[in-house]
Design a protein around this nucleic acid. Structure first.
Lengths: 138, 138
DNA sequence: GTTTATGCAAATTCTTTGCAATACT
DNA sequence: AGTATTGCAAAGAATTTGCATAAAC
């Protein structure tokens, strides 16, 4: 049984070829992907609707998490260990490079923010933009 | 000359009825509005395309700013003083209540975040979610 | 064999573009 | 008068839904 199949089973998912394909695409890149990024990487006969459903399933199961985008779309990136069906547990900064366009998950924690009394926080999303390390170097 | 007209002129915009209308809608609410929120508040004969253009113009001129949404859309909220055509200057936290659905600009600064060497930051967006003060009270 | 996922068709909604008519200053 | 804005039509994307078929376990 392949690595991809195992990974999907770990999340209580049937290891269909389509899902393995999408999972592999995420593994191939170290930055967040939009629906259309993924679509471009799939065999052309793949069905867009199935991809919608696959992404939704992956989100629900805690395989991937949403990455906000300043243009209003969404991107997706693989979760690290701590996520599952019950709870997503993300506390890292997302950085979008305005030069290369890539959005990456940084290994930097979002600092705690104190809100006024009465606010309960369940989720936090921090998107920073600018020029990334790679683009500055070149 | 009305307050709305003056406000638009301050931003170098012609004070057309459509723009005054949209501006008034923003003034009527103290939370961020999506394109469709605004559309619902406009007279039904209003043109969707014009609204797209009005929002774009308001963004460019620094009258409103983008508010990211966890569902992938965008919302918009009035800027405070410090924004103009040259530069948007936002450093406040956005909070989306998962109960009432409203996203508000909080008067809370985004704490500084130290990124690895080589990263330049030009913009920062922090969206927190949970239950807002109002909803917790009731 | 049962349950879950896929593919396809179709409907809806969202967004963009071009252009002629209109309104603003 | 001159320039910017609007409204309309139309095209193109993006997203959702239902259902019958096929695949996974």
């Amino acid at each position: 049984m392949s690595k991809l199949e195992n990974l999907l089973r770990e999340f209580d998912l049937r290891a269909t070829p389509g899902r393995q394909e999408v999972l592999q695409i995420f593994l191939n890149y170290d930055f967040a992907l939009s629906h259309s990024d993924i679509e471009k990487d799939m065999p052309k006969e793949a069905d867009r609707v199935t991809l919608y459903r696959t992404l939704k399933t992956f989100l629900d199961k805690g395989i991937i998490h949403k990455v906000l985008d300043d243009q209003g779309g969404l991107k997706y990136a693989l979760c690290s260990h701590s996520c599952n069906h019950e709870q997503h547990n993300h506390n890292h900064v997302h950085f979008k490079c305005n030069n290369c366009g890539q959005t990456t998950c940084l290994d930097v924690h979002i600092p705690p923010v104190k809100l006024p009394k009465g606010f309960n926080i369940s989720e936090t999303n921090l998107l920073m933009q600018g020029i990334c390390g790679n683009c500055n170097r070149s």
